[in-house]
């Protein structure tokens, strides 16, 4: 590191506080999103998985249930990836 860099670094320390703030904003927004979902969502997901597994062998991770609230209308989004046919 040159002498010049030494002075430049001292003037502008990399702020760990701003990293902390950025990370917090992301995780907190994510967790608030989950919080606003109704309690029954995990059970709903489980029952959907149970029904589908009666007919097709699927992976738990391949089922996504999400509830979106837009103004006065809620959208239940169901996304199931079926296994490839052999």
């Amino acid at each position: 590191m040159s002498l010049f860099d030494y002075f430049r670094d001292r003037k502008k320390p990399a702020s760990t506080a701003s990293m902390a703030k950025e990370r917090l904003q992301i995780i907190v927004a994510h967790e608030r999103g989950q919080r606003s979902q109704p309690d029954y969502l995990p059970r709903l997901q489980q029952e959907i998985i149970d029904v589908i597994s009666k007919y097709v062998k699927i992976d738990r991770d391949q089922v996504h249930v999400a509830l979106d609230n837009q103004d006065d209308c809620s959208i239940l989004e169901l996304n199931i990836t079926l296994p490839e046919r052999l």
């Binding site: 320390p13 990399a14 702020s15 760990t16 506080a17 701003s18 902390a20 703030k21 917090l24």
Partner: peptide, 9 residues
């Protein structure tokens, strides 16, 4: 020093 979250953060 930018090492701690500020009040406004």
């Amino acid at each position: 020093n930018g090492e701690m979250l500020s009040v406004s953060d």
